[in-house]
Design a protein around this nucleic acid. Structure first.
Lengths: 215, 215
DNA sequence: GTCTATAATGGGATAGAC
DNA sequence: GTCTATCCCATTATAGAC
């Protein structure tokens, strides 16, 4: 543990902080708890970071949840997008729900960090950047699905990406509060269908009707 | 301020706590800040509550967000549900967004309180109860809409209520992070259409196609 | 009931030894 | 670089006066 560069130690502290926050919440993430978790002395903390706030900010910057739409992309590897686009989105949402249910504390930590960022100087911009990443990931997935099934979206992809982000966030908070996994799975299916309802009708076969996008 | 029953003083402290939490976050809601806000002495706090945790628990119990689906019910007062059910839901979501945008700190406080409850003994049950209230409110609104337009839901109302709760939560966190009001409004419209897509087709006129609910 | 005063703890941050 | 020791402040909670 005591080997490596200065940057490594910084990273060790960030990782330790994330574990502590997941376990105890942002409020419980004291410098003492974090340094204990990282196996360094309290004094060393202030050699690496000037303040606790600086660490929290660094944690937020680090942990934009890169796994969030990974499941979606995994689902695209299977070839089913062509025949069952809703199934692909549902599978992606379910992959995220698997992640959430396996590590609820981690996802709760993400939420707490975002909310605490909103109360810190520059935090609003940090949060904005974080959500832009989510938004872009979601938009890419939607583009890929449309390409895979040779159809196009009847509603701007940015709006549908926003919808997907909203749904992911909503499923997270709702499940964290209720722990009703069956309801979350049903929600994922309904959400997936709601998104794919915005696919233009397949030019050849007669699929389910699409929703038009009012302007 | 110094008049009233013991229950009144308790209530004063709970109200003060909520204001402080909205302003400073849960972490900043110290007994000192709360008693200062309420205009009582620090010592008096522990005459009313045995501990800070007990107060936070009381705040959570108190503030289940009763306004959350109030806009929906307001929208029902207008007679448009018969001809434009999606418009009613959209108006309800927009009424909630108005509330959110007018008092972002208040809604953020709600979220922080829910998350902090999840880390307290018995907090999971508290959160569950809170979301049951939301769920029931949403289900009632959906029932009322179906009744108003003389149609029925093709998907269990409980599932659609869940969807509405998910969307409300998701719109909240997303807007708090991005402050993109235009996107939130577009999201509200798309969400409203997604819900009403689950209305059975009107038996007389030929409306837009409905989604079937797979079992 | 409501206050003041104080105890007891825990926190962030720094000084300085090694 | 990394640690120990320490400072100083804020916090929760209690004791006891009024």
């Amino acid at each position: 543990m005591s080997r490596g560069t200065a940057a490594d130690r910084r990273q060790d502290l960030i990782d330790a902080a994330l574990r502590v926050i997941a376990r105890e919440g942002v409020g419980g993430a004291t410098t003492r708890a974090i340094t204990r978790e990282a196996g360094v002395s309290l004094g060393y903390f202030h050699y690496v970071f000037t303040s606790r706030d600086e660490l929290i900010t660094a944690v937020i910057d680090e942990v934009t949840d890169t796994d969030r739409f990974q499941g979606e992309e995994g689902g695209l590897a299977g070839r089913s997008a062509e025949t069952d686009p809703a199934g692909v989105i549902e599978a992606g949402l379910n992959a995220y729900l698997d992640l959430l249910m396996a590590s609820p504390h981690r996802e709760q930590a993400m939420l707490e960090l975002t909310l605490s960022a909103l109360r810190m100087p520059d935090g609003q911009q940090q949060a904005k950047r974080q959500y832009e990443v989510y938004h872009r990931s979601a938009a890419e997935v939607l583009d890929a699905i449309a390409r895979a099934c040779g159809r196009s979206w009847a509603t701007p992809v940015e709006d549908l990406a926003e919808l997907l982000v909203v749904m992911t966030d909503g499923l997270t908070t709702t499940w964290l509060a209720t722990r009703d996994s069956a309801a979350a799975r049903r929600g994922a299916r309904i959400c997936a269908e709601a998104v794919t309802a915005h696919l233009e009708p397949d030019p050849v076969s007669t699929g389910p009707a699409s929703l038009s996008h009012r302007r």
